[in-house]
Design a protein around this nucleic acid. Structure first.
Lengths: 120, 120
DNA sequence: CGGAATCCGCGAAGATACTG
DNA sequence: CAGTATCTTCGCGGATTCCG
């Protein structure tokens, strides 16, 4: 049983809570989602994620890169081209993420229903 | 293809993005996690989720209640007792959430490793 | 094109005090 | 015990400008 890691997100200082924060942030999940089907350029990601600013997209991509979730490739061309791609680690995250998406699409009506009843 | 729901989290105004925000917020996942094994009192949840303030705990629980994820039961006693419990909807969310936790605990070393290399 | 740097507003979140 | 009310701080995130 103690083969399980003792990462404890309920502790304030545990790294696993930072991970929750990362996943929880507004853009990471969406950005990783756009990269599901293959590498994309910066501007392509920006176009697909509606409402993200250039600054936040940069921050999100950089953070994901630092965490080893995506790789960043710069091509020495004019005009410059930069491609982002899911790493093996990043791809392994897609599965639980899709489970979450599946839940969301399935149960969204229930949530909306609960909300409308709460308003009454 | 379009038998799939057309919830599109990539659109700025889609409800499913609100759901991402909800799940993504700092405390919801942790709070729902504490309720996995049965109902808890307010103070018990507070004690288990390290670092959460009463204010944020209240907000989180209220939001979860509005979304139909938890139920809130007030007992007419002195001193007052309030219990929070996962609803059926809330319990259905635990599965994808645990998948996420599992990923986090499994791959945390990889992430930390990537970070340390990024620092170099 | 793909950023970096700067400024700044506003809402989220913590601390504190009080109440039913 | 389980909140509410109020204040203040803090940093996220948008807009803009400039650079290689």
């Amino acid at each position: 049983m103690n083969t399980k890691q003792d990462w404890d997100p309920y502790a304030r200082d545990c790294p696993s809570r930072q991970l929750l924060d990362r996943i929880g942030d507004r853009w990471t999940v969406l950005v990783l989602g756009t990269l599901e089907d293959g590498p994309l350029r910066f501007s392509e990601v920006a176009r697909r994620v509606d409402g993200v600013s250039q600054k936040m997209l940069t921050q999100t991509l950089r953070a994901a890169e630092r965490d080893g979730l995506v790789t960043r490739t710069v091509f020495a061309e004019v005009p410059p081209r930069v491609e982002y791609e899911l790493s093996a680690l990043g791809r392994s995250l897609r599965e639980p993420l899709r489970a979450l998406e599946a839940w969301a699409t399935t149960h969204m009506p229930d949530v909306l229903d609960a909300r409308s009843r709460a308003h009454a």
